[in-house]
Amino acid sequence: MDFISILSIFVMACFVGYYVVWSVTPALHTPLMAVTNAISSVIIVGALIASAAGGSPTAKWLGLIAVALASVNIFGGFAVTARMLAMYKKKER
């Protein structure tokens, strides 16, 4: 992909993000932060590429550490979000 197509995706995604986030109910702003935390760890993709590749042992180890850090976030972020969301209950009728 050339730079311009990537930039287009990015700009469009910023607009999508703007509207989607404004539609999030304020009651769920803490879970929103927890889940954005988890999904921003998609950076693990880069970490996996670095740790999978041969060539530079240093790069591989940096990648592996990054994989571990991102995994803390992915598992921790989704789990804590799920835990919070499970607490939100409607009135019993």
């Binding site: 880069g46 970490a47 041969g54 530079s56 240093t58 790069a59 940096l62 990648g63 803390v72």
Partner: peptide
């Protein structure tokens, strides 16, 4: 958790600099 994302980004960028071919 934010600090971990930040650190992971630093490590990935550093790895990319050291092994750009990958």
């Amino acid at each position: 958790f934010h600090s971990l994302v930040g650190m992971a980004a630093v490590l990935v960028a550093a790895a990319a600099f050291l092994n750009p071919e990958a």
